[in-house]
Design a protein around this nucleic acid. Structure first.
Lengths: 342, 342
DNA sequence: CTGAAAGCGCTTACAG
DNA sequence: CTGAAAGCGCTTACAG
């Protein structure tokens, strides 16, 4: 009764049926009589038999696997993946598993060109791309994927004309919510720390939302209040210094990322400005640190779980031939102390 | 010249050789003449051909895939995976990819029992288990894996008698380093916040290291200085209050996790004790927050990358039949301001 | 409801 | 150095 690596043939022999019937019974085919099905399944269980997925894959030409390609921005040996994507991974894995798909994870460098291989080699039925939000750098890669009829979905905003399915955060709405919240709390001179360049479409969209909220309140965005800053170390600090140097008055700051915001808060305090009394601050992303800084940072949060589930639904839809549409998710304002509303 | 989903047969036809020769040429077999190999490979490239991995897997009975099973401690819908394991994932993926293996990721609940299936179904050649450090709860599962001849390696300390390969942090050494550092900086009355229970062997080992350092300095561990505390919210705070209530004198605290340490620092400050002037504090883990609290926390760090690479080497060794031994990695003390040494 | 048969696309011993 | 052939373990049309 002990077989080492049992196959469906072994089960068939023990059950006294054909191998085809075993296959049907294990897949709960309605073509099999109840009694037969149960007998076969019991034997399979007793033998610790599991369907050989390699064989099933070859036969069905499906892998029931999704490849999750994480783009690693840091060239070099030390992989530092954006923690936002890392925490998405947990939810992606669960959602995929719920739909019967395995998840293959790979870290990719900008120079890598293996994307197409995943589907072409039958290792995966489709791809989820994380960290490819900056379409401008990846346009060619994405075009090549589409050219090869690869199914993929991407986390990021759709600018228009890009191939493939995407799911993104409505960054315009996020910037709008942040700015509007400051306005509602009586702030009038709201500085923007970030970028207006289309090189970073996600960040530029947050700026657009900022402008929209201001104009809605009858305020024309003021060049003097806008300072360029990236999320690199010290950029937020430097931006505040520049603002102070300009001698322009301001009573609030909207930073397009939490990293910039936290850095900026330090600069404000160092220069004798109290947050939020003198200057209210709002960030974007809700990084784990945001809740722990002093004062705790008001920020805009993207629902990671919803995003993950949307991406999985998207790629599975593409794989199974259902219609899927690219879409944007509404972010949510998380009010803490730094904006002065508490 | 355009074939939709080319197979090795298509390449063979175009190259005017047999399908077997194509297979050999693509795998760089020395049996193939240089000229032939190059001709075949060029055609494959031109056609965007990739070896069908499903077929290769079935034929070779290998998947060249490692399953990474992350244990999720939070039962329920909201997957909150320990960030330490999440960041390990990046390095595991790279190391595996360097050795020619794909990585399949799955989040598992305690109630799940799919572990065996991964290898039995040919989805993976072996498993890496993360978050299964508390052997006592998993002993049965691990025994079942071993019983089924599943190859696996586990992150955690080996207590003795457990089946399978493991790689862990030398927690005794970590606790020893932390305590010894405090002693060297003149602290004599060092409180321990944590647990001595064998239910948490990793934490208990840190306590053992603490005792070892004290005894080496001629100090007998004092029951009065040892307070039970878990990493749950507020436990570190409560532990300090208990210590103060006992009325026992102390000039330093070694907390077995950073979470406890950070919580404890807050309690100390709230009770008018300055860190590190009155009480020096050392934690364990080097969580991201540790560098950002005030004062920055001195702590013990495990080398995530080294751990990841060790686990991958371990499982690949098992798969490829090389001898592998379970081992412990030495952690490293990261000196910041909270211990008073800076 | 069940079985005999074909075939998915490779890899590799065997023969030359 | 190359080819013909077998076979990995399934799933599924086809026939009854």
């Amino acid at each position: 009764m002990k077989v080492d690596n049992p196959t469906s043939r072994d089960i068939a022999e023990l059950a006294g049926v054909s191998q085809a019937t075993v296959s049907r019974a294990l897949r709960n085919s309605p073509l099999v009589r109840d009694e037969t099905r149960e007998r076969v399944q019991k034997i399979a269980r007793d033998l610790n038999y599991f369907v050989n997925r390699s064989a099933a894959r070859l036969r069905t030409q499906q892998s029931n696997t999704i490849a999750l390609l994480l783009f690693d921005e840091t060239e070099g040996e030390d992989a530092q993946i954006n923690p936002f994507f890392l925490s998405m991974l947990g939810y992606i894995s669960r959602a995929a598993s719920g739909l019967g798909y395995d998840v293959l994870v790979s870290i990719q460098q900008l120079s890598d060109d293996w994307h197409i291989e995943y589907q072409a080699s039958n290792r995966a039925d489709g791809l989820i791309l994380l960290g490819y939000g900056d379409y401008t750098s990846y346009r060619e890669k994405l075009a090549a994927l589409a050219e090869a009829n690869t199914r993929f979905t991407i986390w990021g905003p759709k600018i228009g004309g890009e191939p493939g399915h995407s799911l993104g955060c409505d960054n315009v709405d996020g910037g709008y919510q942040a700015t509007r919240h400051l306005l509602e709390n009586g702030r009038q001179r709201i500085a923007l720390l970030g970028t207006t360049s289309q090189r970073s479409p996600e960040l530029a969209a947050r700026y657009d939302g900022y402008c929209k909220a201001l104009r809605e309140a009858g305020i024309e965005p003021d060049e003097q209040l806008i300072v360029d800053a990236s999320s690199a170390d010290g950029e937020g600090y430097r931006a505040i210094l520049e603002l102070l140097e300009r001698g322009v008055e301001f009573d609030a700051v909207f930073a397009v990322t939490d990293v910039i915001a936290i850095d900026a808060m330090r600069a404000l305090e160092d220069n004798g400005l109290s947050v939020p009394r003198d200057v209210a601050v709002v960030g974007f992303d809700d990084v784990p640190l945001a809740a722990y800084v002093t004062p705790p940072l008001t920020t805009v949060r993207q629902d990671i779980r919803q995003a993950a589930e949307g991406l999985v639904r998207g790629i599975v839809g593409l794989i199974e031939g259902e219609p899927v549409e690219s879409s944007l998710m509404a972010p949510k304002l998380v009010v803490r102390a730094s904006c002065g509303a508490l």
